[in-house]
Nucleic acid binder design. Structure first.
Lengths: 221, 221
DNA sequence: ACAAAAGTGTTTAGGTTACACCCATGA
DNA sequence: TCATGGGTGTAACCTAAACACTTTTGT
């Protein structure tokens, strides 16, 4: 730690995670139920304090391991909240990250330290959240919507190979509006970000071609 | 401060400011020359530690007052840097903000505490920067460019009333490429964000109509 | 054979680009 | 009168939106 006279402040630094997935045709977010004060019994974002020597991203990944038990997720820094009044216990600066987990990569949520329960909540049916977490969540949803339109993040919500209908559904669920099938396909295919495989989906009806992303990273248009 | 057992980490929290202005047909950034170790003599971003009870944005505004002496600037949080190795003195988490100051709102830069000098540098002629500040600066420039294209932030770099040519120049300087005059005017005017005043510019040649932004806040397209 | 999802083109409207000349003013 | 920046329109192109029927498969 700095030893110079300018180091006035030693606030606690925490990370919070906005973990999204798509399940049951709904966008869902992982929440934990607090087992301790303040906001005991309330639902809140999973998160925790950053340990000495630990990078911010490492800290989030550790929390995700503990609570969501998922790895291989997409992770991106969202915003830092530092209002002195945001935590009744004292000064806590929280760096919020948002994460996307593919449904086929989900384990059951585990309530970790200080949490009595952990669950996925559909965005249309949220409980009251602790602290300023509702505001953080709203910001994250806006960012997710915006980013969906000019990047390839959707890959993080889908299995490795997927049909165009599945991809379209991801867009429709997140943007919360229907899209035209023909226009959607035309646009996505013209972007040259997908590769058609020779695999086809099973199921009760006409099988669909499965595609994979050429580049399993987020790229921008 | 939290007294619970989870408060492992008490890193120092700082803010850094990326202050941009346009002067002499160039995008310029405010830098200070460090008077103390580490990186003594190096140029760096203005910034400092957050004081107890002080909001992050307050801390940046205080630094801006001290070093840039400008108020009424546009201010936006950029990103938080928390790599444990980024400051050789120890753990410092830094929340970077970017600020835009209109050229007609500039005072001379003042070297404040711990700085021996403070200057504007054109982006095309930068010194080597201390810490990870070069990376932060690059990120800020990218954000500025992106935001210029889908928001009205340009207002913050211009005087209250300005000609369309002045506005176009702001775009050209930041995007670092020439724009077509007719297309630029058509597009900007069709957005319905400007209001024509009855004032006209002085100068040696044909006077230009002056415009003002209808809404002196950042709005998005 | 039927139910269900897959797959496929064309037309229209709107926006973006490229491009060159006349105008008003001060010196 | 000349030098300098202010101001204006049109055609070609491209992208986005609206819109409905045929195909393939499992049951």
């Amino acid at each position: 730690m700095p030893k110079t006279k300018e180091t006035f402040a030693y606030p606690a630094v925490a990370v919070d995670a906005l973990v999204f997935t798509i399940q049951g045709d709904q966008l869902q977010v992982a929440l934990i139920q607090r087992g301790i004060e303040p906001f005991k019994g309330c639902w809140a974002l999973p998160g925790g304090f950053v340990r000495p020597g630990e990078a911010l991203e490492e800290a989030v990944k550790r929390e995700l391991q503990e609570e969501v038990g998922a790895d291989g997720v997409y992770l991106e820094q969202l915003y830092t909240f530092g209002d002195p009044e945001r935590d009744p216990r004292g000064r806590v600066i929280s760096v919020a990250y948002f994460a996307l987990v593919a449904a086929d990569n989900l384990r059951d949520l585990k309530a970790s330290t200080d949490a009595v329960d952990a669950r996925w909540f559909p965005l249309h049916d949220l409980p009251t959240l602790a602290f300023d977490h509702r505001r953080i969540l709203d910001l994250a949803v806006n960012r997710l919507r915006a980013k969906l339109e000019y990047s390839t993040i959707a890959y993080a919500l889908l299995p490795h190979a997927f049909s165009l209908t599945q991809l379209q559904k991801v867009y429709e669920i997140i943007l919360d509006r229907p899209l035209d099938k023909r226009n959607f396909r035309k646009k996505i295919l013209s972007m040259d970000i997908l590769e058609q495989t020779d695999r086809r989906s099973g199921g009760a009806h006409r099988p669909a071609s499965l595609y994979i992303f050429k580049n399993r990273e987020v790229t921008f248009f």
